[in-house]
């Protein structure tokens, strides 16, 4: 005789199968993209691959004047690094401010939430008009930077809020009772403990900025970032070279995610004193 727990595993099987099918559905295109980027010189944009080679990666490296992905890549990385650094500083400040429960912190929270909720197309378009009216020239390292931080900052802020929520306040109280000032307690005790979380927020910001398309599209001047260059090439002609770019940046993102996960894992270890 099977107990009721055994019978309920039928649901588990159905849901489990659905989950696995969805995972395959989600991952197959990504794997296919990776596979096709290694197709032979005569390979097209779909199967058969006509042999395997690094041809398209070599193309990517050699690059013609028309489709050189290297400068956009450099711009994207620099931009993402700048956004990430700014996000770290501002979100730690903002999250610390929230702990101070200043007047109007509810509104402040909603303002940050608006940055996540407001679609990139509206923010990007609106900001582009604002710049046009103010007579400011659009450029990837000024206007795009401003807009992208408004996207990465709220995520960093929420991350830091979550980090401080997990943080054991008594550690700070201990330092304060030992005669440390608020500032030195923050510098010597708080910051080192939440550092992995801060790094996580930074990597999060990097990845968000690096992949951002809609906001950049309206606010980047003549010099494109990587997603813009990819989209432009897609408009002209679809070649396995785009797959090669895609595979490269996806690997790049995966490395960032891994680092981020490790950072959060380390943070959970360092901020939770009580072991369960």
């Amino acid at each position: 005789m099977i107990g009721w727990k055994g019978r309920s595993s039928l649901t588990a099987w159905v849901l489990g199968t659905l989950t696995v099918i969805f995972l395959a559905y989600q991952w197959l295109p990504i794997f296919t993209l990776g596979l096709l980027s290694f197709s032979g010189p005569t390979g097209g944009t779909t199967f058969p691959m006509n042999g395997t080679s690094f041809h398209w990666y070599q193309e990517l490296w050699r690059a013609s004047v028309m489709n050189d992905f290297k400068p956009p890549l450099l711009r994207s990385v620099l931009l993402a690094a700048a956004c990430s650094a700014t996000t770290i500083v501002l979100s730690v400040m903002a999250a610390q401010a929230m702990r101070g429960q200043f007047r109007g912190n509810g509104w402040f929270f909603y303002l940050m939430l608006l940055g996540i909720m407001a679609p990139g197309i509206l923010v990007g378009f609106g900001f582009a008009i604002l710049m046009r009216l103010m007579g400011v020239d659009l450029s990837w390292d000024t206007t795009t930077f401003l807009v992208q931080v408004s996207w990465t900052l709220p995520f960093g802020f929420l991350t830091m809020l979550a980090v401080f929520n997990r943080f054991d306040k008594r550690v700070e109280e201990a330092a304060l009772t030992l005669g440390a000032s608020r500032l030195s307690t923050f510098r010597r005790i708080t910051l080192p403990l939440v550092l992995p979380g801060v790094i996580g927020a930074g990597l999060f910001g990097f990845s968000l900025s690096y992949d951002e398309y809609a906001r950049s599209m309206f606010t980047t001047g003549p010099d494109a970032t990587l997603p813009l260059a990819v989209m432009a090439q897609l408009d002209r002609q679809l070649t396995p070279e785009i797959y090669a770019v895609g595979t490269t940046t996806t690997l790049f993102s995966l490395i960032a995610v891994t680092l981020c996960t490790v950072a959060f894992w380390a943070m959970r270890r360092s901020t939770s004193l009580r072991r369960t």
């Binding site: 993209l33 398309y213 995966l254």
Partner: peptide, 13 residues
């Protein structure tokens, strides 16, 4: 966590 644009492109083939 990876680029939405690239993931959309991955559906083309």
């Amino acid at each position: 966590w990876t680029s939405t644009l690239i993931r959309a492109i991955a559906w083309v083939p």
